[in-house]
Amino acid sequence: MTPISYFMALSAILFAIGVAGVMIRRNVIVMFLSIELMLNAVNLAFVALGRRMGSMDGQVIVFFVITVAAAEAAVGLALIVAVFRNRETVNADELNLLRW
Protein backbone atom coordinates (compact mmCIF):
# COMPACT_ATOMS: atom_id res chain seq x y z
CA MET A 1 0.00 0.00 0.00
CA THR A 2 1.05 3.55 -0.65
CA PRO A 3 1.20 6.00 2.26
CA ILE A 4 -1.05 9.02 2.04
CA SER A 5 1.98 11.30 2.33
CA TYR A 6 3.10 10.21 -1.14
CA PHE A 7 -0.16 11.53 -2.54
CA MET A 8 0.44 14.79 -0.70
CA ALA A 9 3.92 15.03 -2.17
CA LEU A 10 2.54 14.46 -5.67
CA SER A 11 -0.06 17.14 -4.99
CA ALA A 12 2.68 19.59 -3.97
CA ILE A 13 4.68 18.85 -7.13
CA LEU A 14 1.66 19.33 -9.38
CA PHE A 15 0.75 22.59 -7.65
CA ALA A 16 4.29 23.91 -8.09
CA ILE A 17 4.23 22.95 -11.77
CA GLY A 18 1.01 24.91 -12.12
CA VAL A 19 2.56 27.95 -10.46
CA ALA A 20 5.57 27.70 -12.75
CA GLY A 21 3.23 27.54 -15.75
CA VAL A 22 1.49 30.76 -14.75
CA MET A 23 4.87 32.42 -14.24
CA ILE A 24 6.75 31.38 -17.36
CA ARG A 25 4.06 31.17 -20.04
CA ARG A 26 2.62 34.25 -21.73
CA ASN A 27 -0.16 32.53 -23.65
CA VAL A 28 -3.37 33.31 -21.79
CA ILE A 29 -4.91 29.92 -22.57
CA VAL A 30 -1.88 28.03 -21.23
CA MET A 31 -1.88 30.21 -18.11
CA PHE A 32 -5.53 29.28 -17.68
CA LEU A 33 -4.66 25.59 -18.06
CA SER A 34 -2.00 26.00 -15.38
CA ILE A 35 -4.59 27.44 -13.00
CA GLU A 36 -6.76 24.40 -13.65
CA LEU A 37 -3.74 22.22 -12.90
CA MET A 38 -3.37 23.91 -9.51
CA LEU A 39 -7.06 23.27 -8.81
CA ASN A 40 -6.52 19.59 -9.56
CA ALA A 41 -3.49 19.37 -7.29
CA VAL A 42 -5.64 20.72 -4.45
CA ASN A 43 -8.38 18.24 -5.35
CA LEU A 44 -5.89 15.41 -5.02
CA ALA A 45 -4.89 16.67 -1.58
CA PHE A 46 -8.57 16.86 -0.58
CA VAL A 47 -9.29 13.29 -1.61
CA ALA A 48 -6.08 11.92 -0.06
CA LEU A 49 -6.65 13.63 3.29
CA GLY A 50 -10.31 12.64 3.27
CA ARG A 51 -9.17 9.07 2.81
CA ARG A 52 -6.80 9.43 5.71
CA MET A 53 -9.50 10.82 7.99
CA GLY A 54 -12.01 8.23 6.86
CA SER A 55 -14.36 11.06 5.93
CA MET A 56 -16.16 11.72 2.68
CA ASP A 57 -16.38 15.48 3.05
CA GLY A 58 -13.24 15.85 0.94
CA GLN A 59 -14.92 14.11 -1.97
CA VAL A 60 -17.98 16.36 -1.77
CA ILE A 61 -15.70 19.41 -1.72
CA VAL A 62 -13.98 18.06 -4.84
CA PHE A 63 -17.39 17.77 -6.47
CA PHE A 64 -18.00 21.46 -5.80
CA VAL A 65 -14.53 22.40 -6.97
CA ILE A 66 -15.13 20.63 -10.28
CA THR A 67 -18.39 22.53 -10.69
CA VAL A 68 -16.77 25.87 -9.94
CA ALA A 69 -13.93 25.03 -12.32
CA ALA A 70 -16.46 24.36 -15.09
CA ALA A 71 -18.11 27.75 -14.50
CA GLU A 72 -14.72 29.41 -14.34
CA ALA A 73 -13.64 27.79 -17.60
CA ALA A 74 -16.79 28.90 -19.40
CA VAL A 75 -16.53 32.52 -18.27
CA GLY A 76 -12.75 32.67 -18.68
CA LEU A 77 -12.84 31.30 -22.20
CA ALA A 78 -15.62 33.72 -23.09
CA LEU A 79 -13.39 36.52 -21.83
CA ILE A 80 -10.49 35.22 -23.92
CA VAL A 81 -12.72 35.05 -26.99
CA ALA A 82 -13.90 38.63 -26.43
CA VAL A 83 -10.36 39.91 -25.90
CA PHE A 84 -9.07 38.06 -28.96
CA ARG A 85 -11.83 39.56 -31.04
CA ASN A 86 -10.72 43.06 -30.08
CA ARG A 87 -6.94 42.73 -29.88
CA GLU A 88 -6.17 39.74 -32.17
CA THR A 89 -3.81 38.25 -29.61
CA VAL A 90 -3.74 35.92 -26.62
CA ASN A 91 -0.30 37.00 -25.45
CA ALA A 92 -0.51 38.42 -21.94
CA ASP A 93 2.39 40.79 -22.60
CA GLU A 94 0.48 42.53 -25.39
CA LEU A 95 -2.67 42.99 -23.32
CA ASN A 96 -1.37 46.09 -21.57
CA LEU A 97 -4.22 48.56 -21.84
CA LEU A 98 -4.61 48.65 -18.07
CA ARG A 99 -0.90 49.23 -17.44
CA TRP A 100 -0.09 52.66 -16.00
Binding site: I13, A16, I17, V19, A20, V22, M23, I24
Partner: peptide, 9 residues
Protein backbone atom coordinates in the same frame (compact mmCIF):
# COMPACT_ATOMS: atom_id res chain seq x y z
CA UNK B 1 9.24 32.18 -11.92
CA UNK B 2 10.92 28.81 -12.12
CA UNK B 3 12.98 29.53 -9.01
CA UNK B 4 9.87 30.70 -7.17
CA UNK B 5 7.93 27.58 -8.14
CA UNK B 6 10.79 25.35 -6.97
CA UNK B 7 10.89 27.25 -3.66
CA UNK B 8 7.13 26.81 -3.32
CA UNK B 9 7.46 23.05 -3.92
Amino acid sequence: GAIGAAALA
